[in-house]
């Protein structure tokens, strides 16, 4: 044996930088960045660009850290599900301990830096978001109750509220409604996904509503939450950050979303399986545009206000 021999066991833990970055769930992070950015920009108080960009970065890092903690805790079920089997921990690229260390380190760093860059309230909200996602959702609710998506959705709903707090240093009806918009949107979004990804959640024994209460009940729930979501989304248009552009967009999007939910509600399993869940997939795709366009419309209103247009 020579010095050039490489022992395969020595290669463990030799992950690429991209593998660690993947622990931060970049796709989820992009939604966090976008909604936090909108929350920051629509606020009535202007923030220095460097402070604003730093704050968005630390919010994103905090969200990514909670993603790493989620991957540390959920490595066993991630390995079972096709959608998550290639994540760095179940794929063997990064150890669970590394994911834990990265998650904890980045969590502390993101919260402290946000407190220094912006204010204590936004840092406190970020810390609570990380705790909520990593502990309340990942460790507690996800494997215990079929309402996991409903309550866990709160974690994804905080970023625009944090962005608003960065600018204003407070919480108001506008930021609460932005929170409520994402909070109410999450259940129909994920349950539409669960309807056509059923085998994965079954295999991992996660108590998704489709597994515990059946698919008929899930279809009812999608409709109810979509109906509850509509007044929240449209109501946001009547606040100080809304305006005609947002209101028109919200009414159109909610009519279409409710129609999609009714379509899902009216179908049975036989029809869905026969056409490969076309409607469920269509509504799931639409739900992504739904959220993007609502926050996009808020951004348009804020831009128009800058030119003395828009708003009420």
């Amino acid at each position: 044996m020579t010095d050039a021999t490489v022992n395969p066991r020595d290669q463990q833990g030799e992950a690429e930088f991209g593998d660690y970055f993947a622990l931060l769930k970049p796709r989820v992070m992009s939604l966090v960045i976008f909604t936090a950015f909108v929350g920051l920009l629509v606020a009535p108080v202007s923030v220095h660009p460097v402070v604003g960009l730093s704050a968005i970065l630390f919010i994103a890092v905090g969200a990514g850290a909670s993603g790493a903690l989620n991957m540390w805790w959920d490595a066993d079920i991630d390995a079972v599900m096709k959608r998550t089997a290639k994540r760095p921990v179940p794929a063997g690229k990064v150890t669970a301990q590394e994911a834990l260390a990265l998650g904890l380190t980045l969590s502390v760093m993101a919260v402290v830096m946000l407190a220094l860059a912006a204010n204590m309230l936004s840092a406190g909200l970020l810390a609570f978001t990380i705790f909520f996602y990593a502990v309340v959702y990942t460790m507690w609710l996800k494997r215990w109750t079929p309402q996991n998506i409903v309550i866990g959705g709160a974690a994804g709903a905080f970023p625009p509220m944090i962005g608003w707090a960065v600018a204003t240093g407070g919480v108001s009806i506008e930021s609460v409604l932005m929170f409520a918009l994402i909070f109410m949107w999450t259940p129909p979004h994920f349950w539409a996904l669960a309807l056509f990804m059923k085998s994965d959640y079954d295999k991992a024994q996660i108590p998704m509503l489709t597994v515990t209460h059946g698919r008929r009940v899930t279809r009812h729930h999608i409709l109810v939450y979509t109906l509850l979501l509509a007044p929240v989304a449209i109501g946001l248009g009547l606040t100080s950050i809304g305006g005609p552009v947002y209101l028109i967009a919200a009414v159109v999007m909610n009519v279409l979303f409710v129609k999609g939910a009714i379509d899902i509600w009216r179908r049975d399993e036989a029809a869905s399986e026969a056409d490969g869940y076309v409607t469920e997939k269509r509504v799931f795709r639409f739900s992504l545009y739904y959220l993007f366009l609502h926050f996009g419309a808020l951004l348009v209103e804020a831009t128009l206000r800058g030119f003395g247009l828009g708003g009420w």
Partner: peptide, 10 residues
């Protein structure tokens, strides 16, 4: 290569 990627990234 993996080490270099990691070191460069960090």
């Amino acid at each position: 290569k993996r080490r270099f990627s990691r070191n460069l990234g960090v």
